[in-house]
């Protein structure tokens, strides 16, 4: 039913994504789908990498580690955004198009009052992605 699952991850907080990663693995196994990990970085150095290339390498490392752990095929697709704090949604929507994924599985926070000001990424993804989106609430 699904051939390629896009899994947006926040590499800096990968530990908080345990439920979403597990669901991704279960679905990949069920549908024999490839998992494509997507992460967004700014051109400026960040905590994880000093430039976009290093960041892409870190993401690929993460993808292959997940693939080995769960036994599915994985790839990675890193995105550069000038202003990731604001442009994250649009960048992820672009990544969905570029990767050609037909399912998105992503973690989301518990909705709160701040969502009226800054809507959640999962919510926006679900309304605009044009493919199935599964938003997994982390505890």
């Amino acid at each position: 039913m699904f051939r390629k699952i896009m899994a947006p991850v926040d590499l800096a907080h990968a530990a908080r994504l345990s439920r979403a990663l597990q669901v991704t693995a279960d679905l990949a196994d069920r549908y024999r789908a490839e998992v494509c990990f997507v992460a967004v970085t700014a051109p400026a150095p960040g905590p994880l990498a000093r430039n976009p290339e290093e960041f892409a390498a870190r993401l690929e490392e993460f993808a292959q580690a997940e693939a080995a752990r769960h036994g599915y095929r994985a790839s990675s697709h890193s995105m550069v955004s000038h202003d990731p704090a604001v442009d994250l949604d649009d960048t992820l929507l672009r990544a969905r198009k570029e990767t050609g994924a037909d399912l998105v599985v992503m973690a989301s926070h518990v909705p709160g009052i701040a969502d009226f000001l800054l809507p959640s990424h999962g919510g926006r993804m679900a309304s605009h992605a044009g493919v199935s989106v599964m938003v997994v609430r982390e505890e």
Binding site: P52, A56, A57, S76, M79, V80, R94
Partner: peptide
């Protein structure tokens, strides 16, 4: 390292720079 087809979101490789 990701190959070119999976990695279009990134600018071209940046060549040498002297990281501190």
């Amino acid at each position: 390292m990701a190959d070119d087809t999976t990695n279009q979101g990134i600018p071209q490789p940046e060549g040498e720079a002297d990281l501190i």
